[in-house]
Amino acid sequence: MAELAAERASSAQVKELAAKIKGAQDPEITMMSGWLTGWGNPVPDAGVSAAMPGMDHSAGSGHPMPGMMADDEMAKLRSASGADFDKAFLTMMVTHHQGAVTMAADELAKGAYPPARTLAGSISTAQTAEIAEMEKLLSAG
Rank of each mutant, 00 (worst) to 15 (best):
D56E: 13
A116V: 01
I123G: 01
A105N: 15
G62Q: 12
D56M: 10
A88E: 08
H96D: 12
S122G: 15
H96P: 07
A70H: 12
L108Y: 01
K110P: 09
V101W: 03
H97T: 02
G67R: 01
A112I: 05
H96C: 11
T91I: 00
T91W: 05
G111N: 01
E130F: 03
H96G: 05
S81K: 15
M69E: 08
A80M: 10
V101F: 06
A129S: 08
S122F: 07
M65V: 06
V94C: 12
F85C: 11
M93W: 06
G99V: 06
Q98E: 13
A116S: 14
K76I: 03
L119H: 08
T91A: 12
G67F: 01
A120D: 02
F89I: 06
A80E: 12
V94H: 08
G121Y: 03
G67L: 04
T125A: 11
A75N: 11
K76G: 00
G82A: 09
L90Y: 08
A112S: 12
A105Y: 00
P114M: 09
R117K: 14
D106W: 02
P114S: 09
L77R: 13
A105K: 15
G67V: 03
Q127N: 05
G111W: 01
L119A: 13
A80K: 09
I123N: 04
H57R: 11
A100D: 02
R78E: 15
Q127L: 05
D56V: 04
S124F: 04
G99R: 04
T91S: 14
D86I: 04
P66D: 03
R117Y: 00
V101S: 04
M93N: 04
A120I: 02
F89Y: 14
A126I: 00
G62M: 12
S61N: 10
S124H: 07
G60M: 13
T128E: 00
M68G: 05
A112P: 00
F85W: 13
K110T: 15
K87Y: 05
L90A: 06
Y113K: 00
F85L: 13
M55Y: 13
V94S: 10
H57T: 07
A59I: 13
M74R: 13
T91P: 10
P114W: 06
G121V: 02
A100E: 09
A109G: 01
A105F: 02
D84E: 15
M55A: 15
F89W: 14
P115K: 14
T102W: 05
S58Q: 12
S79V: 06
A80Q: 12
T95H: 14
D106P: 00
M93A: 06
F85P: 08
M93T: 07
P64H: 06
G82Y: 04
G99K: 05
P66F: 01
